[in-house]
Design a protein around this nucleic acid. Structure first.
Lengths: 359, 359
DNA sequence: GTGAAAGCGCTAACAC
DNA sequence: GTGTTAGCGCTTTCAC
């Protein structure tokens, strides 16, 4: 297939484009620069002991020949890794897809290759199974743990794996601290709830997105916090899902109840479903009922009514998570990561003052 | 760092979990099974010439030791590749993220690793640049070319690369046929337009999504086809973008014109923006104006009014594209790929009969 | 400073 | 059928 002769890297590369297959190797560079392949390796990896002139010459040849180190060989030989596998379970989820993009950006900037491996709800997650998803054993892992499947993977990941995660909520203090990046959903939800309460609503209902853990989600906690802070008992949360449909279904009973004047939803899709249920029940939004979303999806400014929501910097979060992993691999890497932006309340049409009580 | 002794694979693996690093190699299996590493390789790769009993024994040992072939080494050694790099430019686009998921599913089923490399609008795309994104030179590539950045990559990809793409539209016949998977957007748009025409609308306006090529998009072509088929001249298309915002902006002038009674949008996001512009202009949808989307995003059934749209099987498309690539790599692979589903018109509230003409 | 040698885990070519 | 040999392109030692 390749060169049938036993001779190795001794003759000129084929002049014409006939055998374009084999790309230029470290030996080609070495030969052209008149040094050993080892010296080339040193130059490429910015190792100390190389004469200035030698380095310059090698660099020049590299440029000329268009040499690119082969990632595989590099990894196989036990060099620095420069690749990550991202474990994620739903690339269509708004937050997850943005986080993935953030990770990819940061990774590319750091010259890391990123692989993606999609988790099913029920994928087996033994250490062996996870290892099987990696391009190379020992490769670092980044998990997007916004939902249960992701969180399971994060938990299941043996601690020997160099890894970081974007999570819904940080673990309890006291657990071994593996790097985790998260958005302060709890504070954001509390802020959202306080905003609604400030509008004069007697209380605020909350519709849950599935929590990544068995415990109640961060957003629900924030909602509770705010209610408690205002001296209100928390009503039973409504159990939603991820989709508009689940929001619609979960809201149908609630919207019939005129006592309910404000609902905070775990995400915008849910809020959209609630909007529809309200409309069908003949309740005016925001006249009779305030509906609030979470995530600030691109469509939130264009629904009817437009959706008050909380903007979250998922992309920055992804970048930050990669930064954590990078620093874990290489402690004297970069300074502090550019922190991701704080959640931001975006007020639109779907929320308003509490209706005047008929009583 | 690893084993400091020069001896290679001659002693027992460390009994305790102390040195968990080095995973079990083909030599470990070979030794345990009392065969050569080559025989193990044959078994693993399902090669013909192995005695039944030998095969069984090796398989058993593999299972026992939990041996997993090292992808890197495999690739380095020039074996079958079993990995793809997906080039995509916007993971948040609905269609693209679903296609990616479809690819990942199919790839995992075929035991391929998938890497993702995100394209910017302005990433350089010389062959060298593309090669730099690959985990290994010569690795197969799958490009998601729904937009200009993706299409540029697909065009720029040297033909030596084993590659396939999901594209908006197939190339002109006559161009070298590299495998391309696409949805019949053109027929779907024609069908949508005919549906609108059938409702009594005098004509149908079309709002474009950016085409992946310099020519007009497939959906626009379909719309033209239908109009022409019905003997109508095609009015000037409206230039939209990808976002609800761009749809809103592009629609503002149009909705003021009472002559316009039906608009077909290049995607649902655009339609959402149009819906808002119509509302602001005081035009009733679908009473005064029918608005139709494309893609059938999950929220389409929950907007107000709910959106008539065209459902497209992006996930199936992704699976199909992977299948094409797989067969390209290994001609005697699988039979025909499970074809992706036909586009499907979903009628909802946003479209209706043409208003009675005042004249 | 630089080069030579060994080997990462695997597959391919060729014996036997 | 099965074992042996020689690399894939690179990074480690360790000499000089």
């Amino acid at each position: 297939m390749q060169n049938p002769t036993p001779a190795r890297r001794d003759e000129e590369p084929p002049e014409n484009g006939a055998d374009r297959q084999r790309s230029v190797s470290i030996f080609d560079v070495a030969k052209a620069a008149g040094v050993s392949h080892q010296t080339v390796s040193r130059v490429v990896n910015a190792r100390p002991r190389v004469a200035k002139a030698t380095r310059a010459r090698v660099l020049e040849v590299i440029d000329e020949l268009g040499y690119k180190p082969n990632r595989l060989a590099r990894a196989l030989a036990g060099g620095v890794v420069r690749s990550v596998t991202v474990l994620t379970s739903d690339t269509t989820l708004y937050g997850a897809s943005l986080a993935l993009r953030g990770i990819e950006e940061a990774a590319r900037a750091a010259d890391f290759a990123v692989s993606v491996s999609v988790l099913d709800e029920d994928s087996p997650l033994t250490p062996d199974d996870i290892a099987g998803r990696l391009a190379r054993p020992g490769e670092p892992v980044l998990v997007i743990a916004f939902n249960a499947a992701g969180e399971r993977a994060w938990q299941a990941l043996p601690s020997e794996f160099p890894a970081a995660a974007v999570v819904e909520r940080p673990r309890e203090a006291g657990q071994t601290g593996r790097p985790e990046a998260w958005l302060d959903d709890r504070a954001a939800a509390a802020q959202a709830t306080r905003y609604l309460l400030g509008l004069g609503h007697r209380t605020v209902r909350y519709m849950t997105i599935p929590s990544s853990t068995t415990r109640v989600g961060q957003r629900a906690e924030g909602w509770r916090d705010a209610l408690a802070g205002a001296g209100h008992p928390a009503p039973e949360p409504l159990e939603g899902g991820w989709s508009p449909r689940s929001g619609y279904l979960a809201a149908r009973a609630m919207v019939a109840d005129p006592q309910v004047t404000a609902v905070l939803c775990g995400n915008d899709d849910l809020a959209l479903g609630v909007l529809r249920a309200a409309r069908e029940a003949g309740r005016d939004v925001p006249g009779d009922l305030s509906v609030m979303g979470f995530d600030d999806a691109p469509y939130a400014a264009y629904t009817h009514p437009t959706l008050t929501s909380v903007r979250l910097d998922f992309e920055g979060l992804g970048r930050g998570a990669f930064g954590m992993l990078h620093r874990l691999l290489d402690p004297d890497e970069a300074p502090a990561p550019p922190l991701w932006a704080e959640p931001d309340l975006i007020v639109r049409e779907s929320t308003g003052p509490a209706p005047h009580r008929p009583a």
